[in-house]
């Protein structure tokens, strides 16, 4: 691994100042489960690594605030998957957090890190998209909020501006009773990168939100507010037509070694159907959420 300077700011202001002065030579370190791999293989060669785990405002934690569940940036997957509120109201996120790597990885990997890598295969992105998550971001100009759908650009690229960092992820508490599920496809049952990752929610008004990743340069959100997709009485052809529309933005790379593009597309459709069914069953089985 190439040497670098190590900074461990204790406040947000200090972190932003370091980022401002170091420019693109700085890299943020949260859980490190992705960054350290890339430092070691040399694909990243920063001069400064800024460890954000000492920043008071970013300390791990999940709290309710003004109708939102707010997950601090350095909260790790282990704590997200175990949190009772996440499990109850954001089931698909709990499920996705539970399949990010192994136990050892989930004990380190943070939600903000998973998002900021902007890997198209990130498993937490689809659940956060269906849950309408907003990122709370701090930078030289102060705080701003970025809807998650406006955050991803393409693999490794986000709309985060220079010297900005994500401080929290905010999820609106469920506006209606809903069921949700996270599903994925991998090459084996043990921990693996997803070749398709998908989350789906269906609420009591028939609103279906479907988000998917690993089938294009960024995760995609599709919404059916007609109620038809979630309605088992809707004719098959009509539901498939809606799915055609929701899945139209999938464009898997033909160059991937993890799965062929036609297989990915077929699996996306299988997961979408299963996701709608699974979310609907959960909706039917619960009185809340």
């Amino acid at each position: 691994m190439q040497p670098f300077a190590y900074r461990r700011p204790s406040s947000l202001a200090e972190a932003v100042a370091i980022l401002e002065s170091s420019g693109p030579e700085a890299r943020l370190l949260a859980g490190g489960t992705d960054l350290i791999i890339r430092l070691r293989d040399g694909t990243l060669r920063p001069s400064v690594v800024v460890d954000v785990k000492g920043v008071a405002e970013l300390r791990p934690g999940i709290r309710e605030d003004d109708g939102r569940l707010v997950i601090a940036a350095t909260t790790v997957m282990t704590d997200i998957m175990a949190d009772p509120r996440v499990r109850r109201d954001f089931t698909a996120l709990a499920e996705a957090a539970a399949v990010v790597g192994s136990v050892q990885i989930r004990n380190r990997a943070t939600l903000a890190g998973n998002l900021c890598n902007a890997s198209p295969a990130a498993d937490t992105s689809p659940p956060l998209l269906i849950y309408d998550a907003t990122l709370v971001v701090h930078g030289p100009g102060g705080e701003r909020r970025i809807p998650l759908d406006a955050f991803f650009v393409r693999s490794g690229v986000t709309t985060l501006a220079r010297a900005e960092l994500v401080t929290a992820i905010a999820l609106p508490l469920p506006p209606a009773r809903r069921g949700a599920v996270h599903l994925r496809r991998t090459r084996r049952r043990g921990h693996d990168l997803a070749s398709v990752t998908l989350a789906c929610s269906v609420d009591e008004h028939g609103l279906t939100r479907l988000a998917y990743g690993s089938v294009g340069p960024r995760p995609v959100l599709g919404v059916d507010d007609s109620g038809a997709l979630a309605d088992p009485a809707t004719p098959e052809a009509e539901r498939e037509a809606i799915l055609d529309r929701l899945l139209a933005d999938a464009s898997p790379s033909p160059r991937s070694m993890r799965a062929g593009p036609d297989y990915r597309l077929a699996m996306l459709r299988v997961l979408a159907r299963r996701g709608i069914q699974g979310a609907s069953e959960r909706l039917a089985n619960r009185s809340t959420t």
Binding site: L29, G32, T33, I36, I37, D51, V103, N107, R108
Partner: peptide, 19 residues
């Protein structure tokens, strides 16, 4: 390379010593 760090297992190859 698994070790227990403050009560939780980690892959010690993905943790900087300074962390």
């Amino acid at each position: 390379c698994t070790v227990i760090l403050d009560g939780r297992t980690v892959d010690s190859c993905l943790v900087l010593a300074v962390e």
